[in-house]
Write a protein that binds this DNA or RNA. Structure first.
Length: 315
DNA sequence: GCACAGGTAGATT
DNA sequence: AATCTACCTGTG
């Protein structure tokens, strides 16, 4: 049987869907049978909600500890949300109530950088498509095709021990190979043309530029992640294709900096419609956000974003 | 057919 | 320092 992964706090319903498929990461998807399939770093997992804080879990690659780290299960997300100024902010209180348990996942910083370089003026569906193509064509294999899930544990069987499924009649479609995202070292070997073939458009030039930059400076990204927020952000903005917004996304989702407050068109809209900040510039809104929401502004941003997306879908 | 999409960078005012 | 524009391409 599949092992059960127990979380410290509930993550279910709209908060689960928003956490995994709300635009903070681009490699989780909900399958037809209700299972969440996801890849992050060295993890390839299938999760089936079993109770509000437990999942049946099949790991095709990676360990349960890796998965817990990805879900940032060491943090008390209930307490973090409660530390936001929801007592004096009615709209924020509404957002918190609508997505109880929403989390900021921990992603490898290089993957967050790649994903958000692809995000410029694109919808989430399309970003996911680009990232899927980048992984399939240029990332190393995490789990081979037609591989039985490693249901026992993650020891004693290597990927090479998997049996091909010959008779697939009653099992549904055969599983395709699961690929990791390409590392920046691997991306340095990919031509701009090949990147454009992954639907990146003008973003391909940015990826090439960043790959060159990082290749010449080993350890630069990891050093950046360890710097104080303001210094880290200033360094990220040196990268081609990275401005204020993407730098904040990389720090929030790839370096656990919950004070980072990315300001995109959605947040601009939220601040105008819900907070009356009509005509404010992104820089002004960013300043307002840091002051009003405080050191966990990034978590507030994710709640506001989730609520506004839900409204836009016609709630 | 045409605007728009979780932006950025360089030019122009 | 604020505003304008080009940059790719799938989706409605």
């Amino acid at each position: 049987m599949s092992p059960v992964v127990q979380l410290q706090l509930p993550l279910a319903g709209p908060a689960l869907a928003e956490t995994l498929d709300g635009g903070q990461c681009f490699r989780w998807r909900l399958a037809g049978d209700g299972a969440w399939h996801g890849v992050s770093g060295g993890i390839a997992a299938e999760l089936r909600p079993r109770s509000p804080n437990a999942f049946d879990c099949v790991l095709h690659a990676g360990t349960v500890d890796d998965l817990r780290r990805h879900f940032a299960d060491d943090l008390d997300w209930h307490a973090l949300a409660d530390a936001l100024p929801h007592r004096t902010d009615r709209h924020l209180a509404t957002c918190l109530a609508a997505f109880p348990g929403l989390r900021i996942l921990r992603q490898p910083i290089g993957e967050a950088l790649l994903g958000f370089l692809c995000s410029a003026t694109k919808q989430i569906v399309q970003i996911k498509q680009m990232v899927a193509l980048l992984a399939a064509r240029h990332g190393r294999v995490l789990a081979p095709a037609h591989c039985h899930p490693l249901v026992d544990n993650d020891r004693g069987r290597g990927p090479g021990d998997c049996h091909p499924i010959v008779d697939n009649g009653s099992r549904g479609p055969a599983a395709a190979a699961v690929h990791a995202l390409p590392t920046w070292g691997e991306l340095a070997e990919v031509s701009e043309e090949a990147l454009r073939a992954c639907l990146l458009g003008f973003r391909a030039r940015h990826v090439v530029g960043v790959a060159r930059f990082l290749t010449e400076r080993p350890g630069w990204l990891e050093e950046t992640a360890a710097l104080p927020y303001a210094e880290a952000k200033a360094r990220l903005i040196e990268l081609p294709g990275v401005g204020e917004k993407i730098a904040d996304c990389v720090l929030l989702f790839g370096a656990g900096r919950l004070e980072a407050f990315p300001v995109d068109v959605w947040i601009l809209r939220v601040m105008a419609r819900r907070y009356g900040l009509h005509g404010w510039s992104p820089a002004q809104v960013a300043h307002f956000g840091r002051v009003h929401f405080g050191p966990l502004a990034g978590l507030a941003q994710q709640y506001l974003f989730a609520w506004e997306r839900q409204e836009a879908r016609g709630a």
